[in-house]
């Protein structure tokens, strides 16, 4: 297609890379903390390989939940429902659904890790796995909810489009919490 270069606007190669790359570097620096936590927990993971099975999900899922809620909240703001009234039952339905999803998914994660544990030759009792997955998972879900409200509201107030900057930041910050809390709770439960 031979559209004149000027009309490409935000689809210009330089503008996509120029806008995106600095944000990516900032996000990397944030998530580096999660990496350092994981490296530090190396001995625990060597002893309990079954925990390694849960790591990618623990890193992603809080961010996924935060992204679902943030995009719903930002759609509400775009549509003109600008108040976060604590008496608004619809808002509480959103929060409740996120927490219910977290409870379901992290229970399924514990069962999944329990079943796959034999495959990697590492086992822990189901109750221990459920405790680790649900305590860390629900804590992360609560953090995801708080951060989604705070950043969606802040970006609305500051006039920034949440889709471009705040949602990636929420997702990555929540990912870090996911890792730090998961490793902390595991160490506590296993007495490491």
């Amino acid at each position: 297609m031979d559209s004149p270069r000027g009309s490409l606007g935000s689809w210009e190669l330089r503008s996509i890379v120029g806008n995106m790359f600095p944000l990516l570097v900032v996000l990397c620096v944030i998530v580096l903390w999660a990496g350092i936590t994981l490296e530090d927990a190396q001995e625990m993971l060597e002893q309990y390989g079954i925990l390694a099975l849960m790591v990618p999900t623990m890193v992603d899922m809080g961010g996924n939940l935060g992204a679902i809620l943030s995009s719903r909240l930002s759609t509400r703001l775009h549509l003109g429902t600008t108040d976060f009234d604590p008496r608004d039952r619809e808002l509480w339905a959103n929060v409740g659904a996120i927490l219910a999803l977290a409870a379901t998914i992290f229970t399924a994660l514990a069962f999944g890790a329990y079943l796959l544990g034999g495959l990697v030759g590492s086992a822990l009792p189901l109750t221990t796995l459920l405790t680790i997955a649900l305590v860390s998972g629900l804590s992360v879900a609560v953090i995801a909810v708080v951060f989604s409200f705070a950043t969606t509201y802040a970006s609305y107030r500051l006039g920034v489009d949440p889709d471009d900057t705040t949602i990636p930041i929420v997702t990555n910050v929540v990912d870090v919490f996911g890792m730090v809390i998961f490793i902390g709770v595991s160490a506590l439960v296993l007495g490491f």
Binding site: A52, P56, T57, A108, L116
Partner: peptide, 19 residues
């Protein structure tokens, strides 16, 4: 989210192999 969980558990098996 359940599909993402499946992907996450698969990635976990690979990660365990990297320990």
């Amino acid at each position: 989210l359940l599909v993402a969980l499946g992907g996450g558990l698969f990635a976990g098996i690979v990660l365990e192999g990297m320990v």
